[in-house]
Design a protein around this nucleic acid. Structure first.
Length: 921
RNA sequence: GCCUUGGUGGUGAAAUGGUAGACACGAGGGACUUAAAAUCCCUUGGCCCGAAACGGCCGUAUGGGUUCGAGUCCCAUCCGAGGCACCA
């Protein structure tokens, strides 16, 4: 019997599905392990070989953990709401649900061929009303909560309202948009509209006006992580800043906790660092400057991390969008300021980024008073100060801040150094080192000490206070699009009002077109009767990250229609033990999910504070493109090695008709009609293609479909090969050159069991050499899988199989454990052989063989080693070593021992005349 | 500019501070075969000596350092990848 992978794989995939082999059931008597992949967006293009890289890695780990006795939860689903399906719908008029369903079916077919151990009974789709009911539910909970700074967690908004009724804002410490103060009497006197507006200042999900990223081409706002270099991540369309009223999530309230608990996570340092930067904690001071405008005084709070440089302040700067800007514009400067504001406003975000080096600004006509020196300094307005960070106003110290320096140089403002001996003739001196000067009471202090001393001073004198700022902004949560979750909000007398929980899910209505209305309203405004009890419903929808923020919780209890997840299921599965996915979600999904989870944790719906314990980032698989070279003006193609002799045109050729850079000539002629009569200039009888590493994409003809690899080599070979390619965290090009190696390995493995039709395994005792090969592999595999070093595990496998082949091993006692060891990597062939060995149940239910170190130790003899006439230590040497060699070794050891001195040498490995390994206790 | 990474044969890559290049691909040579496929064996970092060797020298981006011993640790430099970027 030959290794017929097509038949074997088809057979076992059908069996696993029919037997529900991988169905996970809560079982408190067994330890759980939750392995999760980042669920895919089912695009129209289908899977390419890059997608399954992470899925294969997690599948191997799942199967391994299962063999180790864990009750493994390994689910899969689809992030099915999103822009591409909607753009397609706008173009074709097809309902996005239709294309999404088709794409999902195609993904599923492709995934099934690779033999994953998913529990498909737990599949979720974010666009399914039974699923998004819980996305809407969470939104309602956020709408109904505020963040209490004393409790340091989210609490029901009713508690805040009760506090307002008692004492107004007095004594309330809670995360909010702007500082607000009112008494209980004032609160009670407010109209319902006013109260609704005021509460928005505290709600965790709230409606508020902010500068948003508006993308005119997509007709929607975008979150910060959906914009890169001033262009939308999806589609690459220009994005501009615009003030708009939008739904937002108060993620900023969780900035401190998101930062702190990062420490406890088993994620890579680089990913944690990315999140740290994104959250951007900075410790500084808020200081109040009196600003005088046409004789009127206004207190202006500025934020700085360097109060110690306050004696070097020579001007102040306001953000153009700051609400203070009109207030602080003096009459005489009004025209100039307005002109500048108009100039800033018409710039797109992209232009703003492109021109960061151009310094612009305008004088406001006001003067601020330095609270420490009483000195008057001019107040300027410039776009280099951001309205959204700190207080939107700064004190400028050009001598010690490079941005202030550039501004001062441009507008001829004074540059006053306050650190002794620094040179500011060419650039600012930003370093926090040196001795203070020109700084009153700080003079002579070291800069590091001055920072603290200045903070203490400012606080003691009541001029300001210490303040921690975060860069992390609230997430804009509405999109003016069709294909997303509708908000469970209606407008009663114009007041945003939550739908009752019983009304969920609020399902997406049918519309005649998927475009915005003529009036510029979102597509949902086209829906007939989009109302609740006669009142209009919200017409925007939620963004992509809404549905993906808590999907890992839904897998724990996917069919529950009473709760997102039952307390029992949550208490059993708790959180994801291993999460595998790409780094591209570092500042999006992975922040939102953590926020969402912490919120649910605060309200007591989940028992773990963090969703993803361990996270592994798989690298990307790039494409390896191939080229042919057409001699210009002909239909003749010249092989790469000879192309320099001709004038040629480089043409991408489909990598699927190239093997090992050799072009399949007939397939090439059949590929395109215009190449049907192509002629070739060969080298060494073959046409060799050129190549380059590029992104895997249709237009480069370098997309390799996993289906084709499964057809030609089998799923087991695909799995093994993708893992053998290199460490999973690393990006690497897909190159089919090496695939024959693993394919050969599997056939060799098969031949340990079958010689033609003869089934070889037999009873009887295994030889020491055979056991040694087996146990070395067991030890190595355990160690490597835990470290996600799958490529070295596979190498160890190849060595073991070569050894056993050479030993002509046919002992069941060796071969049977070998099948179990292989099963996480190549489950189909393992299952087939496992059943051939007479087992009824799946190899997935076998247990991982126990490692016995005794078999791997070589025969050794212990020799005493002495120097200076005293016995110092012993050394193990192979039994087979000749006496003369032993003598040489012992002398070498003595020499080394002299260096090592009195320390005790535990182990030493020696080759003739040379010490190789000394282990010192 | 800042942060995080990485730099090892023709290629993908291995190496708790201890014989660098395991394993695999490719290449070259050979066996089996009418032939091919499949399979198996040998060689394969560079240079040198030699009839042969279990011979010698040089090699992990570059330059220093720590160590009995450095691909691995420390410092500086160069190059690549990813992230952030007027965040005061």
């Amino acid at each position: 019997m030959d290794y017929n992978f097509r038949e074997i794989e088809r057979k076992w995939q059908a069996r696993w599905a029919a037997d529900h082999t991988f169905k996970a059931v809560e079982d408190p008597s067994r330890p759980k392990y939750y392995v999760l992949d980042m669920f895919p967006y089912p695009s129209g293009a289908g899977l390419h070989v890059g997608h399954p890289l992470g899925y294969i890695a997690s599948d191997i780990f799942s199967r391994y953990k299962r063999l180790k006795g864990f009750n493994v939860l390994h689910p899969m689903g689809y992030d099915a709401f999103g822009l591409p399906a909607e753009q397609y719908a706008i173009q074709t008029g097809q309902h996005p649900e239709k294309t999404t369903t088709e794409n999902v079916a195609r993904y599923r077919r492709q995934l099934d061929r690779i033999g994953f151990s998913y529990d498909w009974s737990r599949e979720v789709r974010t666009c399914d009303p039974a699923y998004y009911k819980w996305t809407q539910w969470a939104f309602l909970k956020m709408f109904g909560s505020y963040y209490d700074l004393d409790a340091d967690k989210a609490l029901p908004i009713e508690r805040l309202i009760a506090a307002f009724e008692q004492n107004g804002t007095e004594g309330v410490r809670a995360a909010c948009g702007e500082e607000m103060h009112f008494t209980a009497a004032e609160w009670k006197a407010m109209s319902p509209e006013r109260r609704s507006k005021v509460l928005m200042n505290w709600r965790i999900a709230y409606q508020g006006e902010t500068a948003v990223n508006w993308c005119p081409v997509l007709g929607t706002v975008l979150a910060n992580d959906e914009v890169k270099d001033g262009l939308s991540v999806r589609g690459g369309h220009p994005v501009e800043q615009k003030m708009m009223t939008q739904w937002q999530l108060r993620v900023s309230a969780y900035a401190g906790r998101l930062l702190e608990s990062l420490e406890s996570l088993d994620w890579t340092d680089s990913l944690k660092e990315m999140q740290r930067n994104w959250i951007g904690r900075s410790q500084g001071t808020e200081v109040t400057f009196e600003v005088e405008t046409d004789g009127v005084k206004t207190p202006v709070v500025i934020f700085t991390t360097r109060v110690d440089t306050i004696f070097g302040v020579t001007f102040m700067v306001l953000a153009p969008e700051s609400p203070l800007t009109p207030l602080l514009t003096a009459k005489g400067q009004k025209a100039a300021v307005e002109e500048y504001l108009a100039y800033v406003k018409k710039k797109t975000e992209r232009e703003r980024i492109a021109e960061t080096k151009t310094v612009t600004g305008v004088f406001s006509g006001s003067y601020g008073i330095n609270p420490l020196t009483g000195e008057k300094v001019p107040v300027w307005i410039s776009e280099y100060v951001l309205a959204g960070y700190g207080t939107g106003a700064i004190m400028a110290v050009p001598a010690h801040d490079s941005r202030d320096y550039a501004f001062a140089r441009k507008f001829g403002l004074e540059i006053r150094p306050i650190i002794a001996g620094c040179d500011v003739s060419e650039a600012s001196f930003d370093a926090k080192e040196g001795k203070m000067c020109n700084s009153g009471f700080l003079d002579g202090m070291d800069v590091k000490d001055a920072i603290e001393a200045a903070k203490d001073y400012v606080e003691a004198k009541g001029l300001g206070r210490r303040k921690v700022n975060y860069r992390l902004r609230d997430a804009i949560f509405s999109r003016q699009r069709y294909w997303g979750e509708p908000f469970p909000i209606y407008y009663k007398d114009g007041i945003p009002t939550p739908l009752p929980e019983e009304a969920l899910p609020l399902t997406l209505p049918e519309v005649d077109e998927y475009k915005p209305t003529e009036a510029g309203e979102p597509p949902l405004a086209r829906a007939k009767d989009w109302t609740y009890e006669g009142w209009p419903l919200e017409t925007s929808t939620m963004p992509g990250f809404a549905g993906s923020s808590a999907y890992y919780l839904r897998y724990m209890d996917p069919h529950n229609d009473k709760a997102l997840v039952s307390p029992e299921a949550d208490a059993y599965w708790r959180s994801v033990d291993l999460y595998i996915g790409g780094t591209e979600h570092a500042t999006g999904h992975l922040i939102y999910s953590r926020f969402w989870n912490k919120f649910l944790y605060d309200l007591g719906y989940v028992c773990e504070d963090e969703p993803f314990r361990k996270l592994v980032n798989q690298g990307m698989i790039q494409g390896r493109s191939n080229f042919v070279y057409r001699v210009v003006g002909t239909n003749t193609f010249v092989s790469v090695g000879l192309k320099d002799g001709y004038k040629t045109q480089e043409i991408h050729v489909d990598v699927n008709i190239v093997r090992g850079d050799r072009l399949d000539l007939d397939a090439f002629r059949a590929w395109r009609p215009e190449f049907a009569d192509a002629e070739f200039i060969l080298e060494d009888g073959a046409y060799i293609c050129g190549w380059a590493i590029e992104k895997m994409s249709k237009s480069m003809f370098n997309v390799v479909n996993p289906d084709e690899v499964c057809d030609n080599y089998g799923a087991d070979t695909l799995r093994l090969y993708e893992m053998f390619l290199g460490p999973i965290e690393q990006s690497k090009p897909w190159d089919t050159k090496g695939i024959d190696g693993v394919s050969r390995f599997l056939r060799k493995f098969w031949r340990l069991f079958y010689d033609g039709d003869r089934f070889l395994p037999e009873e009887g005792e295994a030889s020491p050499a055979e056991l040694k090969a087996l146990h070395r592999l067991i030890g190595k595999e355990q160690e490597d899988i835990e470290a996600f070093s799958y490529n070295t595990t596979i190498s160890a496998f190849m060595i073991a199989v070569s050894e056993l082949t050479e030993l002509k091993c046919c002992k069941r006692a060796v071969l049977e454990p070998l099948v179990v060891l292989l099963s996480p990597f190549a489950p189909h062939i393992a299952e087939e052989l496992w059943h051939a060995l007479g087992h009824e149940s799946s190899v997935a239910d076998a247990s991982f063989p126990a490692y016995n170190a005794a078999y791997t130790v070589e025969d050794k003899v212990t020799y005493p080693v002495s120097f200076n006439g005293k016995l110092r230590f012993t050394v193990d040497l192979p039994k087979s070593m000749a006496p003369a060699e032993v003598e040489a070794h012992v002398r070498a050891l003595e020499q080394t021992a002299r260096y090592v001195g009195e320390q005790h040498i535990v182990k030493m490995i020696v080759v003739p005349g040379r010490i190789v390994n000394v282990v010192v206790k």
